[in-house]
Simulated assay, not measured.
Amino acid sequence: MNRISLEAARVIVRETLNHAEKAKMKPLSVAVVDAGGHLIAFERSDGAPAGRFDLARGKAYGSVMLGIGGTAQRDRAEAQAYFIAAANVAYGGKLVPVPGGFIVRNAEGDVVGGVGVSGDTSENDLAAGEAGIKAAGLVPEG
């Protein structure tokens, strides 16, 4: 598979939210984008603030556009704030360079899309997103 199918995106969303519910996390929002940063699927748990859409999508979009997950983006921002600021301008302010954004790879290592999870702590966002991506048979890189 060289792309995230709609069915795989639905699995990612469902299993990310299931993981969060079982772990008693705060309500999450989950966005799945293709390798071009275009939204495939989005869902938010009951009780998740509506504004989390932009955060989840920004985490996924930034991961795909920069080719690095949200944790690496945060680390890059700490080391080279000017780079992330310039990239955010170049991408129309759509980047959210914090943990919870994932590059998604297929078994061959090709980038097939991105996932963004927002709503709880960065560590919990990461754990939930990783569970969802793996449930779809794909490889998370956060």
Rank of each mutant, 00 (worst) to 15 (best):
F83R: 02
Y82V: 06
A9C: 06
K26H: 13
D46M: 09
G114M: 05
R52I: 03
Y82C: 01
G93I: 07
F53Y: 14
A77N: 09
P27H: 04
R57E: 15
L95K: 09
F102E: 03
D54C: 00
E108F: 03
G101M: 10
V30L: 04
D125E: 09
A79T: 07
A77F: 04
A31F: 08
I12A: 08
I12N: 01
A127C: 03
A86W: 10
E15Y: 15
V89E: 11
G92D: 02
G137C: 09
D110E: 13
P97C: 11
E123A: 14
G114H: 07
S118R: 07
P49G: 13
I40T: 12
S45Q: 14
G109H: 07
A90T: 13
F102H: 11
G132K: 10
Y91H: 13
G101K: 03
L55F: 08
A79V: 02
A90Y: 07
D75V: 04
A31M: 08
A77D: 01
L95E: 11
A90W: 05
R76M: 12
A56F: 05
D110M: 05
G69Y: 00
G62L: 00
V13F: 13
S45F: 04
G37Q: 08
G69R: 00
G69M: 00
E7H: 11
A23T: 04
L17D: 06
G69F: 00
R57L: 15
R57A: 12
E123N: 05
K94H: 04
L28C: 09
R44G: 08
E7C: 03
E78G: 08
E43L: 11
M65P: 01
A90N: 15
L28A: 13
R14Q: 15
G51K: 05
V117Q: 04
L66E: 08
G67Q: 02
A60M: 14
V104G: 00
V32H: 06
N18Y: 04
K24C: 01
G93M: 04
G37L: 11
Y91W: 15
A81D: 07
R105A: 01
V33N: 11
F83A: 04
A8N: 10
M25L: 11
G69C: 00
A90Q: 15
L66M: 12
A127W: 08
V111F: 01
R57N: 05
G67N: 08
G58S: 10
I133V: 14
V96E: 13
E108N: 02
T71Q: 12
A90I: 08
D120T: 09
A81Y: 10
G93R: 05
V64T: 10
A23F: 04
M25C: 13
H38M: 05
P140Q: 03
N124H: 14
A56S: 15
H19C: 02
A135M: 09
V98F: 14
N106V: 07
A81E: 09
L138Y: 07
N88M: 07
V117G: 02
P99K: 03
V111L: 01
G92A: 08
V89T: 12
I40F: 09
K94F: 02
A87K: 15
L55W: 10
A86L: 15
V13P: 00
A50V: 14
R74Q: 13
A128H: 04
P140H: 09
V11W: 02
V30F: 03
S29F: 04
L126E: 13
A41F: 01
V112P: 07
V111R: 02
V111I: 15
G142V: 10
V89W: 05
M1A: 14
I68H: 00
K24N: 14
